[in-house]
Every structure is written in C-alpha cells, then in structure tokens.
Design a binder for these strands. Structure first.
Lengths: 208, 208
DNA sequence: GTCTATATTCGGATAGAC
DNA sequence: GTCTATCCGAATATAGAC
C-alpha cells in the first residue's frame, strides 16, 4: 500500500463509508417509491441521510451515478434471491417456485422492477461492473432452468418472455396482489408440456 | 350554438387547430424517441412546430397534459391496428398474426410502448377519456381471442402475460429486430395446446 | 391563438475552506 | 468527507398586449 494508513484505519473508515452508502441507497429507494424513479432529487436525498446535498458527491459522481448504484443494489438483491432458492427434487416444482419468486420480487417493488428491467431513465446505462451483475443473475437462472427442464436457446427465450410477462402484468395491473403469481404454476406446466412435445421422440408432435 | 361563428368558420378553424395538434404530436414523439420520454422539453417542442413555447399551452394545460395527448394518440394507433387485422379463417393462424402484430407494434417504437404499457412518467395518469381508449383496445383483443380459442378469465390473463412478455423482451433485448417476433407462433401453439389440454371434451377450437 | 417578457422554482454541479 | 456558498442552466408556467 502506498498510503500511510494502517489497515486498521482503512477498515474502520471503510466500514463507516459502506454504512453511509447503505443508508443512502435505502433512502434513495424510499424516495423513488414515493416520487417516482425519475423524480428523485438529490436535495431530498441529502436531507434524508443527514448530509448536505453537495456531500453526496463523495459517494457518486453524478445523478446517473446514483442510478448505477441503485441498479447494482437491486441486482444484488435479486442475486441473493436466486441463490437462496433451495431447489426441490421435483424439477417442475423447482421451476414453479423459481417463477413465483421472481414474479413476487418484481411485484414487491415496482420502481426496482422499472430500473432493473425497463429502460426508463433517459441517459442511464449501467456501468460494465453493474451490468455484469445482471448477467450473473441471468446465467444462474439459465443454468437452473437447464438443469430442470430446458436448455435449447429458443426454450430459454420463450421462458424469459414468460416470466417477464407474468411479472409485468402483476406489477402493472395488480401491484401488491397475486393475480399473476397464482398463474405461475399453470404457466410453467404449459411451458414444460411444450418442451416435452417438441423433444425428439416425444409421443405427440407439435400442434400444426 | 351560443357563439356567433358560422359553422363554416368553426370547421375551418377547427381544421387548422387539428392539423397543428397533429404536427405537435408527431414532433413530440420524435423528441421522445431522441431524448427519452421523460426528457421532452416544451422549448424544443415549440421550436419544432414553429411556435413559441408558451403558445403550446393553447393545446394542452400542462406537460402532463401533453403526455395524455400522446397516450391517447398511441392508443388510437393501436386501436387502428387491432381493428385492421383481417382475421384468418384458421383460429390458430388468426391468433398468431395477432400476436406477431402486437409484438411488432411495441418493437417499432420503444417510447410508445413505454408510455402505453409502463408506468414510467412520475405523476402521469391517463385521463378517463384516454384510459377509455386503452380499455377499448383490451376489449377488442379479448373478444378476438375468445372467438378464436379461449375465453376463460385465467386463459385471458395468461395470454396477456404472454403477449406482453414477448413484446417486452423484444423491446428490451432486441429492439428493431425480430428475435421474439419469430417465437410468436411457437408461443401461441404452446398456449393453445394448454387450453386444449384443460378442456378434455373439446377436440377442436372451442366455440363460445 | 400567438406573441414578448418574465416569474419562479428547482435542479444538478462546482469552488474552496475546514 | 463534509461543509457553506454559489453558480448556472433549464424547465414549466403565467401575465398581458396584439
């Protein structure tokens, strides 16, 4: 290390900084839920975390930088979720639980869903490091799907559309409810039956 | 009429006004595509339609009023589309064409998709009259689906999620392309097979 | 309905001391 | 890293003449 700080100091100060950053993120989400994602104001944010507005610039370079932090944060939450899901031995049951969890995740927090899955903030593009997190999520989801049922690229595309569609309808038309969550099992069955049908050697050919 | 204008005058002036309104909408969409939906500025818009910015207020009451006009405009475009689709005699083919058209509609114009299907503008809520248009679209889509295949409420919810999911993935991950458009037929087959499967008695497309 | 002129507010961002 | 002070630009919206 080129600095004169002891490791001890680095740790303590680093911790303080991390803690502050965490509260900044928490309050940013709160503000986003209240006013809308695009309507977050750094003045309001500063007030909520007991900092003057210019002091926030010690934690990010610009407002888009804040969105990038939030994007990374949301993806970490999602990563924690997909990793934590204990898989049932029954492949069907495993996928159903997986889909239900993802739809609930979206419906729990509409603005998080917006930031993670929709291009809604003018000028915002995730940094490579943040984007990497979302790729990781996608990869895990893909692997779990492949392990349980389907690995064909077309299968994956259809499945992703399916999950996204359920999540979107849930968020847009029944926020906080479970109208589309309850359709997860049925939708998964529909998907799996289709995968079966087009498997070579399957009893029934694709419908024409 | 309580005014002293002749009908002739009303017509002429009304036409001028309608024409101007149409160009305002056209340019507003152009601006939205260029800068993002939330980043439209009334200064830029005025410049593009040869009006001083304050003169725009003769056409809407506020910026949210402009979004309402755009929301109505987009829904009219969608309404024209769903009405214009000539239905094939084959129910499956009719639905496939329907879904493909809807996914293409979204993918053609990302910001239109955003405004119509996502809650992205803080504070914006469609007026009752504008919202009525989107209900009309949904009703027509629902009727056509019922005529061709499925009318059960659960069926409709799954189908709507499906279409939305394809559209969303297309817009988000392959804008301007057709990666998910090409999956429309397969997805519809999957859906129809599922509807069939849960109607053990009916061999052919159900009649309502 | 359109203009000029302007009010007003609010936003993000920077400079520089401590 | 946090503060005070301030800049600067941009934005919507209004007033009032023509």
């Amino acid at each position: 290390m080129a600095t004169t700080q002891t490791n001890h100091q680095v740790d303590r100060r680093g911790r303080r900084r991390e803690a502050k950053l965490a509260t900044i993120l928490t309050e940013a989400w709160t503000l986003a839920r209240r006013d809308g994602l695009a309507a977050i104001s750094l003045r309001d944010l500063g007030e909520r975390v007991d900092l003057r507005q210019p002091s926030l610039y010690a934690y990010f370079d610009s407002k888009l930088g804040l969105y990038d932090l939030m994007f990374a944060d949301g993806n970490r939450q999602l990563l924690d979720l997909v990793r934590s899901l204990s898989l049932s031995d029954d492949p069907r049951q495993a996928i159903v639980a997986f889909v239900e969890a993802l739809v609930r995740f979206s419906s729990e927090d509409v603005v998080r869903h917006q930031l993670l899955f929709q291009r809604t903030i003018p000028g915002f593009e995730p940094s490579p490091e943040s984007y990497e997190l979302s790729v990781e999520v996608y990869e895990i989801a893909r692997q779990r799907l492949a392990a349980a049922a389907a690995s064909d690229p077309g299968d994956v595309d259809v499945f992703s559309a399916l999950v996204n569609g359920l999540a979107h309808q849930q968020v847009a038309n029944d926020p906080g409810g479970d109208r589309w969550v309850r359709l997860a099992a049925r939708t998964v069955d529909m998907f799996l039956a289709d995968v079966d049908r087009r498997r070579p050697g399957a009893r029934n050919g694709p419908r024409q």
